[in-house]
Amino acid sequence: MSAASAEPIVDIRDVHQSFGKVEVLKGISLSVPKGGVVCIIGPSGSGKSTLLRCINGLVPIDQGSIRVADFYVHKLVTDQEKIALRKEVSIIFQQYNLFPHKTALENVMMAPVHVLKENKDEVRVRAVVLLKKVGLSAKADVYPGELSGGQQQRVAIARSLAMRPEVMLFDEVTAALDPETVKEVLNTIRELAQEGMTCMLVTHEMRFARELADVVYFTDGGVIVESGPPAELFDRPVKERTRAFLSQIL
């Protein structure tokens, strides 16, 4: 990618993190250029999701450094500081986590109106456009409980986009969906990536990772085992562990 020379927008160095005595991340380093798309693959429990949560400050790290744009995430202490970071970094969860008492449109509008304090009418216009973008114009006034999983996930993506983040983190966003709806969500993400949004995806969709990613990281046991462009990592994995993992799923 041409962005290689520029300063990366996400820069993670030697991150360690543990829950109690269980060390989940054992020294992870990676960086993402602006507009880059990075996929993280690996077996369950290898710390992929935790890594994403560390990036937007939901989970504190024990050691190492994380920088996102101008924010040194590991140094953020107060809520105020973390809130400033989270305006730039959005995370989308496996379980959608929409607000069940608000309609799809209200879900999208809430954060810009109340957090960014933007004008409500302007936000509404933007929210309508975003819902159209994810193909859910007709569902604006519907509550999450009446939407399918795929639709809920696309509302969640629109909700994140409404904050105009610099970086979007996707935490196994298709893992809870049935195969048909997976496609709807992946198409939405593909569009975002092609428009130049910086994306980090934790995913089990290998074909999608191969198609979209600039770099794929394979993690296992809290470390990055191997990384590289998808063509190399998927077709000519160097490490034995990577080969074993890929042979299981491909």
Binding site: Q80, F93, N97, F99, H114, S160, M163
Partner: peptide
């Protein structure tokens, strides 16, 4: 707790999360 996480990741502060997201539910 996922509702709290979701609100936090949208940059809501604790008071807003409690009043606008948790308590109405």
């Amino acid at each position: 707790t996922t509702q709290w996480e979701s609100a936090a990741s949208l940059a809501f502060n604790r008071r807003q999360t409690l009043w606008m997201i948790i308590f109405p539910q």
